[in-house]
Design a protein around this nucleic acid. Structure first.
Lengths: 145, 145
DNA sequence: CTGTATCCCCGATGATACTG
DNA sequence: CAGTATCATCGGGGATACAG
């Protein structure tokens, strides 16, 4: 029985924890946790990159393949399918020969880029702090002895 | 050579893409990309949960072990070490017997909860949309035939 | 061009037992 | 209590070949 703690957190953070508590106390399936749901996608290797690339506008499969670093066709297809399934991306097939397909963000897809941007901005802003912390930590390991 | 696209994205999203472009065009090591750096941690199975738990205040190892669902001691230790190394969490040992250790968020740790909260809020707000999209997608697969 | 099918490797994570 | 050490597993993701 995880996270029985009640809730006496500071300001903004408070809600977060209570949300976790909420779905867990309700005995919901962890697989159904919205947070894990989103975080899993944010965490995977390509979703954010693809979402970001698509922010520029509709993009064709091969163009995505080029724009998003060294992604394989396999993973590109797979990630796009998941994003499509979740309603973040829309797939359009043009009946040409050879086939042409493009992908674009849906309204939902655009909307997730907002909070994602905030996180990325944080990463940008604090990366130096993080690297400094790492250097201190790693350096301290040896020296400490 | 990924992501050569210039940059003509809408508003808030624009910056994000340009940041990606930035470090890539500078020929920086992908391992050094701040975005991947952060996303990797957000993406892992426990960091966010631990960060959230710690938002309530200093917490002892065993308490964390209980509060954060079914995490193993192994992963708890490992994740805490990483968070500590990155300067998000501070570890304090009290010279008692048996040993007592507690963990707390640093200022940097608290600061990351802000953008993280935004993302989690989005997840909460849009989870129904996502599930609906999935249902439509999955249902449509069979029916479409 | 836009995928799909296979094989394979490796790192992330769980389980369990041991230690200071 | 707070870890560490070791083994086993599982799935993500790359490489490659094939297909409509």
């Amino acid at each position: 029985m995880p996270r029985e703690h009640g809730g006496n957190r500071p300001d903004a953070t408070r809600q977060v924890g209570e949300r976790f508590d909420a779905w867990q106390e309700e005995g919901l399936d962890p697989a159904n946790c919205p947070v894990r749901d989103v975080l899993d996608r944010v965490g995977d290797k390509w979703s954010v990159l693809i979402l970001t690339a698509l922010a520029a506008g509709p993009t064709r499969f091969s163009a995505l393949n080029r724009e998003v670093g060294d992604i394989s066709k396999r993973m590109l297809t797979q990630t796009l399918r998941t994003l499509q399934r979740d309603g973040l991306v829309e797939r359009t097939v043009y009946p040409t020969t050879p086939p042409t397909v493009d992908y674009r963000l849906t309204a939902l897809g655009h909307s997730v880029l907002e909070p994602l941007s905030a996180l990325i901005a944080w990463a940008e802003a604090r990366h130096d702090d993080i690297r400094a912390a790492r250097a201190a930590f790693d350096g301290g390991e040896d020296v400490a002895a």
